[in-house]
Design a binder for these strands. Sequence first.
DNA 1: ATGGTATTGCAAATGATTTGCAAAGACATT
DNA 2: AATGTCTTTGCAAATCATTTGCAATACCAT
Lengths: 143, 143
Amino acid sequence: MSNRINAEKILKNRGYKLTKQRKVIIEALSNRGGPYTANEVFSLVSNKYSGINFSTIYRNLELLVKLGIVEKLNINDECCHFKLAGKNHHHHIICNKCGEIKEIDICPFKEIVNINKFKELDFQPIEHRFEIFGICSKCRSKE
Amino acid sequence: MSNRINAEKILKNRGYKLTKQRKVIIEALSNRGGPYTANEVFSLVSNKYSGINFSTIYRNLELLVKLGIVEKLNINDECCHFKLAGKNHHHHIICNKCGEIKEIDICPFKEIVNINKFKELDFQPIEHRFEIFGICSKCRSKE
DNA sequence: ATGGTATTGCAAATGATTTGCAAAGACATT
DNA sequence: AATGTCTTTGCAAATCATTTGCAATACCAT
Ligand SMILES: [Mn+2]
Ligand SMILES: [Mn+2]
Ligand SMILES: [Zn+2]
Ligand SMILES: [Zn+2]
């Protein structure tokens, strides 16, 4: 089942209406890699549905996050990024030159939890984030 | 040498003036754990120097970050947190209940870099972030 | 096709952070 | 200690991302 169909099914199952706006937002995110800022989502979506409003974009991105369809990233202190939620747990590498944000399926978490130093904290972990900033291979080869 | 004295020395060495405002900001951050939002820094500082302006707080926090004296954290999408820069590399655990942000000196980075899967990315790392969200021991014992 | 409810568009509010500018302050020099 | 220069501050307004109230509209079950 495609990401798009799956997302639409979740909306319906949970009693949300399948509006044209929601469809184009989901379509935009499904077709492309992302992540995108709300601004970028607005631009992408405006191609298919000119006249859509920014608050609709925001309201629906947050809804999709709540439903687990979309992932919200805090990469920097400017604004959030949104992308279709990956099926599997992952982290990100972010290029300081071109800004590209890419998934990596390497996760250090399991090992950390088993370290005694961590156990001593008596901290009950719920989520974690791990991001690496640097220069991507494309940008390196340009230099 | 105390954190405060050290920070003041760096300012002077780099040709920045040691204003009363800078002194109280540095003092506020040096005496307490942090991290603090700009708002919180403003409150702390206002005790010692009522009449200080928000833009002064922001301008100086950014200056101190630039000089490496202060560390700026992007914990959530609301606002940034600032704290005196630790001498050693570290990461954070953040309590979802009480909001406390605590340093941990556990870092998974060295191991990650040596994994073949990472090497294949051909990505040149510069910085990284690792944060664990959950429930701290204090909050757990309250339940 | 109709009606009830969720959703949208719009415009205004919010909250964090930034900026231009004139006045005040720091500090090297006399 | 007084002077002059260059920084820095306070203030008020701007900016930018995001949120919100409300009346008009669009879904979709019936
Ligand atoms: Mn790149
Ligand atoms: Mn806690
Ligand atoms: Zn992980
Ligand atoms: Zn590390």
